[in-house]
Amino acid sequence: MATPLDWSLLQGFLVLAESGSLSQAAPLLGLSQPSLSRQLARLESLTGQLLFERHPRGMSLTAAGRALLPAARRMREGAQDLALALAAREQQLAGTVRLTASEVVSAYFLPELLLRLRLAHPEIQIELVASNEVENLLERSADIALRMVRPTQGMLVARKLADWPLGVFAHRRYLQRRGMPTRETMAAHEWLGYDRSDQLLRGFAAAGFAVEPSFFALRCDQQTVLWEALRAGLGLGVGLVALAARDPELVQVLPELPIPPLPLWLTAHRELRDTPRLRLVFDTIAEAWSAP
């Protein structure tokens, strides 16, 4: 009789297969690299097969690993369906809601809203995933998501809350040091931008200014860090008008630049909208930030 496989071992196998390295897979599973390595060794011992080839750049599936992958994915789908079915039957407010939003929204906009929710419903705990990555609601990476793009999966409930205007801002100290930028002089100014993300490069190109990464004097993919750098006077940066309005030392510059607003979408899995605590959190966010 075949030895039944522990789902946690197969879950580790899947994450490792899809990420390609122990260093990337272990944090996603909440494990250390040695623990994940031991899990893999256990799975290979149970199957009697070498499932991964180790190489300097990471790990790749062997033929045996590729053969196991479809069945493991089907098991994951079954586990997700079971989790959704159980979650949708929960009728109590008490419990946890996993919410994901961008770093800027999580740091500067959500705390006040979550405080009001906490005072009104202390029985609800919030797990906040502050990430600019698009969390997969279908895989239960999060229960509710605030996104700047419209989701396309049919199993999701999506509601557009508002269009948040963007602008170019500088601290008064920077303007005292470098002067007010114009369309003619903007290329000579110090700009703050992203490192690996090409979002701002595409935005500048759409506005008629093709720039290279070297155009930005400071590059960082953490948006909260860039915003604090802007507030420190390091250079010009693009940000939310509503956020800049909180700091009287920030000045909007180059208002003539065509910068499209960011659409704010609130999404949840369709089945989970019928869970009272998820519905309450969903409706609280929607009521707070829906456009009038």
Rank of each mutant, 00 (worst) to 15 (best):
A63G: 00
Q176R: 15
L192G: 06
L82N: 09
N136K: 08
R173G: 08
R173Y: 03
V105N: 07
L69K: 04
M186G: 03
R73L: 14
E127Y: 04
G179R: 03
G95A: 07
L113C: 14
L137G: 09
P151A: 04
A145F: 04
A207H: 02
F169V: 10
A120V: 03
R76M: 06
A158N: 15
A72W: 02
L115Q: 12
K160D: 10
E139D: 13
T185N: 08
Y174A: 03
L201F: 01
A145S: 15
S197V: 08
V104A: 11
R116G: 14
T185F: 01
R74A: 13
Q125I: 00
L110C: 13
F109C: 05
A67H: 01
V134C: 02
V105W: 06
R196C: 06
N136A: 11
G203Y: 01
Y194A: 12
T185C: 04
L137V: 09
A67P: 00
L200H: 03
M180Y: 14
A72M: 03
A72V: 04
P122S: 09
A142C: 13
A85N: 11
Q153W: 13
R177S: 13
V134T: 05
A79D: 10
R74H: 07
L93W: 08
L110M: 13
M148D: 01
M75P: 00
G179D: 00
S102K: 01
V104G: 05
Q153I: 00
L137P: 12
L68W: 06
A145C: 08
A207T: 02
R76V: 03
P122F: 03
W164N: 02
M180A: 07
L86F: 08
Y174H: 04
Q91P: 11
R76I: 02
A72K: 01
D163Y: 11
L113T: 13
F169L: 07
F169N: 05
R76T: 04
E133K: 10
E184V: 13
A145K: 11
A145G: 11
A206P: 06
E135M: 14
V211E: 09
V149H: 12
